[in-house]
Simulated assay, not measured.
Amino acid sequence: MARKGENIYKRKDGRWEGRYISSRTTTGKAKYSSIYGKKYEDVKRKLLQKKVEQISDFTISKRTIKAEKYSEWLAYWIDKIEKKRVKKTTLSIYSRLVEVYINPSIGDLLLNEISSKKIDKFLEELQEKDLAPGTVRNIFNVVKKSLVDAYQQGYIREFPCKSVQLPKLIKHEVNTLTLAQQKKLECTALKETSCSAIIIALYSGMRIGEISGLQWRDIDFDEDMIYIRRTVSRIFSLDSVQTKTELTVGSPKSASSIRKIPIAKNLKNYLQEKRKNATSEYVIESSKELTEPRTITNRFKRILVETNLENINFHTLRHTFATRCLEQGMDIASLSKILGHQSTKMTLDTYAGSLMETRRKGISQLDTLLEIV
């Protein structure tokens, strides 16, 4: 039996068969062709690639698009419209959300059948899966953007997302290391022969992808600056049917992420010492090449085991850096620039809880004005 909306079947000979619309008659009747493979996943990926190639081979008329499934419009939208507007990493995220969440639920609907009620029901189903409100919002944003373009280009008569109610975002306090935990982690990290991504993260606040892409030429030891010029990501593959993921090196996530970070004395000494024995142009090296984020994460997990620290991910180091800066009295505007946030509001919203110690000091200072008669 085929899985709903996919047109993929297991044959009697053990192979999987995927069917797709290869052409249409003058009356609009679909003509099908097939793709075969030993594994279901292989056929599914080849089928998706075939649909994208089909869309690239001819211009879809508005009449045809209106009669097509929403999944086919999404494939066209990603490959022909959104591909020109967003970075490859963002496009990969969109494709993943479409494959995992959107197509299995509403991809089988015709484009002109999408309505507010059906989107509301779709969002309810997502919430029943216990997805985080932020994830639900990200999925909805893909649906909304694709339908905005469908509406603006005249493929649908009404925009169906106007009255949709999204779940409220729940803000959680960021997870940070205590000073004792940080020192324990540092002691182990400092034993590494090559440059440690942990030390860089704790004393610069850089993201894991930025650390992965950091080259020695990005560090100006005369001006005491680190220049953030690139980021490394492992993304869902858009072009290949042979591999599920691919490594990409690109510019940082936003204009504000392209920045420079001052280097303090101890970090500068540490980096200069590691530079002497470096065998790669990349600061975090692996076989003389860059070390991808996945490898950095695996190394980090091994060190966590050694130090008996739990429930910590690599991004916690960035949060810890920000918290230490605030504890030492750094102003929000400066911290926001160092972290590469798009606004000081984002920094305040993220680290409001970390300002508690600053509030306590302020209240204590104010309390000295109180004179008990």
Rank of each mutant, 00 (worst) to 15 (best):
S115E: 10
K117L: 15
K118F: 07
F122K: 02
E125M: 14
L126D: 02
L126G: 02
E128F: 15
E128D: 11
L131C: 05
A132M: 12
P133R: 04
V136H: 10
R137D: 14
V142H: 04
V143I: 14
K144T: 10
K144S: 11
K145A: 08
Y151M: 12
Q152V: 08
Q152G: 12
G154I: 03
R157G: 11
F159R: 00
F159M: 01
F159C: 00
P160T: 13
C161H: 15
K162A: 13
Q165Y: 03
L169Q: 15
I170R: 15
I170Y: 12
V174Q: 02
T176I: 00
L179H: 10
Q182K: 14
K184C: 03
C187F: 14
C187T: 09
T188V: 09
T193F: 14
S194V: 09
C195S: 11
Y203H: 07
G205C: 08
R207T: 04
I208T: 06
G209Q: 00
E210F: 10
E210P: 02
S212V: 01
S212R: 01
L214C: 07
L214W: 02
Q215L: 11
Q215E: 13
Q215R: 15
Q215M: 10
W216A: 01
W216C: 00
I219G: 06
F221P: 01
F221M: 03
M225N: 10
Y227S: 10
I228S: 04
R230M: 01
V232N: 09
F236I: 05
F236E: 07
S237G: 03
L238F: 00
D239N: 11
S240H: 06
